[in-house]
Nucleic acid binder design. Structure first.
Length: 506
RNA sequence: GCGGCUGUAGCUCAGUAGGAUAGAGCAAGUGACUUCUAAUCACUAGGUCGCAGGUUCGAUUCCUGCCAGCCGCGCCA
């Protein structure tokens, strides 16, 4: 239809010319039809679909793996929540997204590294340590007032209690300035361990935990400042040191060193990105909460100031999660301790349902997470629909085995016996899977896998309800078992990308 | 005020490199289990794709303006 306007002939005429010139070297085309205003529809022979099924059933986990990545290395940095409190539900969305994206890129042939950046420097660490310190002192003298901007969550009391169990009143007798560093370190480690545990139970394992403090210790922060100065991008004003980010499209210049002499968080962040580039990643993916979107232009500018190509930096913003309880919004703030933790969601809803929930939405869609609703729908949650499809197939194989029908070898099964529309439908979906992997990876959109899975599960349930795999006809049964093998293989592979289990029975 | 994201069925959401009759789940209604698992299946109903212009043979998709919601706009992180 695009050609039609260039050639100035009706689109159907163009279609006729195209159809007349089709060469079918592999003999896979059954027929071609021109439809509507000028669409050309290709109908492929059944032998093509059965040959794809043979591939899928034979290749095992390798089926669907793409090679668009060509082994290039990608780093996906995500979550990187400040170690000042437990992960909450919003973190869960970012974690599910980042982890699945990494799995997806792996399936598409990239060499992927998952990294968590620990903000273990700065005022918030100070506040954290002081919060625990005061709670500790309050255990001995409840009259001591809490600090104004301290972290109010109960987990701070728990940490203080732990310290008392260990050290009794030892820190009570130290001058405050000597005690605080211990409280900072202890609280940070305690909270990080909790975060690690929560993520592990959520199915998220990082390859690397990168400490912000290490950038100071190694001199990289100073080094970056020096490099930027030599390149002439730094200037002093009002006693502070500024980076000329407006040169690269930011709407104002940014402070790197405050007039107090303290560095802003932006300085180590540039050093961090330099460090990433130096590690040789072909692509660097930063996944942030959408509340940080204003930060992207300055980060891009910082990268360009150092002379790195900003096109190798991809920033994905994940919209925040608005939490509802019985339809009413609940405000969330780590400091005020009003939040639902990821742990609570894991305990109440489960890892699979939570991950699926997060992954059925585009990262830039706003998400209302109604706890009561998710709990209520738990048995009707689409995740179980997909898992059930897998469990049903496994059960068929159990039944077949019990009846003495072993899974046939691919070489002597006659797949041309698969003739039902429902069977063709499943073969087409299996054939689509590699394309889904490729396009999802290119778009960096793991949620497409979720929707594909629901389509595949629908096809399976529909088939299962109307037909039987194990029949009196041995040859037909064998062909159908291979079809089930193919569907099961794809279900497993796709669920693995989402980080959701494929249960053997339900 | 400026910027980002979003607005599609009663609800929660897919879908657009511009193209055929806009899809799914839930909720609603009607049906289906002596069979390999009913956490399932079939059918029905449900839409001015936020509003108004523009570009185009053709716009839910691209452009402009407006409206609504959320989020940013520090020498905080």
């Amino acid at each position: 239809m695009t050609l039609a306007s260039i050639e100035k002939v009706p689109p159907r005429t163009v279609a006729e010319v195209v159809v007349a010139n089709i060469v079918d070297r592999e003999g896979m085309i059954d027929r071609v039809e021109i439809a509507g205003p000028g669409y050309v529809n290709f109908f492929l022979k059944k032998s093509y679909w059965t040959s794809v099924l043979k591939d899928a059933a034979g290749m095992g986990d390798g089926y669907g793996q793409a090679d668009i990545g060509e082994g290039k290395s990608v780093q996906v940095e995500f979550l990187s929540a400040n170690p000042t409190g437990p992960l909450h539900i919003g973190h869960g969305r970012v974690a599910a997204f980042g982890d699945s994206l990494a799995n997806l890129l792996k399936a598409a042939g990239y060499n992927v590294q998952k990294e968590y950046y620990i903000n273990d420097v700065g005022n918030q660490m100070e506040t954290l340590g002081r919060s625990t310190y005061i709670r500790y002192k309050q255990m001995f003298d409840p009259g001591i007032p809490f600090i104004q901007d301290g972290y109010k969550g109960n987990y701070i009391r728990d940490i203080a209690q732990e310290i008392i169990t260990d050290a009794k009143d030892r820190y009570l007798h130290l001058p405050e300035e000597e005690a605080i560093p211990f409280f900072i370190e202890y609280s940070k480690n305690n909270i990080l361990n909790g975060i690690r545990k929560d993520l592990e139970d959520f199915g998220v394992l990082f390859n690397n935990w990168f400490s912000e403090k290490s950038l100071y210790d190694s001199g990289e922060v100073e080094g970056v400042l020096k490099a930027l100065k030599e390149k002439g991008y730094l200037y002093e004003s009002e006693g502070a040191l500024w980076l000329n980010t407006t040169l690269f499209g930011d709407d104002k210049d940014r402070v790197l060193v405050r007039s107090t002499g303290q560095k802003t968080y932006f300085a180590p962040d540039i050093a961090y990105h330099q460090n990433k580039f130096k590690r040789g990643f072909h692509l660097i993916v930063d996944i942030w909460g959408a509340d940080h979107h204003g930060y992207e232009p300055r980060m891009r500018a910082g990268v360009q100031c150092l002379g790195y190509p900003e096109k190798n930096l991809k920033v994905i913003l994940v919209q925040l999660v608005a939490l509802l309880r019985e339809g009413k919004p609940v405000s969330m703030s780590t400091r005020s301790a009003e939040f639902v933790t990821l742990r609570e969601v894991l305990d109440e809803v489960g890892k699979d349902a939570a991950r699926f929930m997060f992954l059925t939405r585009r990262p830039d869609s706003h998400l209302d997470f109604d706890l009561d609703l998710v709990k209520k729908e738990s048995s009707e949650n689409p995740v179980y629909y997909v898992e059930y499809a897998h469990a049903r197939i496994v059960n068929i194989f159990r039944q077949a085995e019990a009846r003495g029908i072993p899974e046939p070898s691919l070489s002597d099964v006659d797949l041309s016996l698969l003739d039902l529309p429902e069977e063709i439908k499943m073969m087409k979906l299996i054939a689509l899977y590699p394309e889904v992997i490729e396009s999802s990876a290119l778009a960096l959109e793991p949620h497409r896998i979720t929707f594909y899975l629901q389509d595949l599960a629908t096809a399976l349930h529909n088939y299962y309800f109307h037909h039987r795999v194990i029949t009196e006809d041995r040859r037909l049964t064998e062909a159908r078992l291979i079809l089930m093998r193919g569907v099961m293989q794809v279900l497993r592979s796709a669920l693995a990308i989402l980080g959701i289990r494929a249960p053997e029975r339900m």
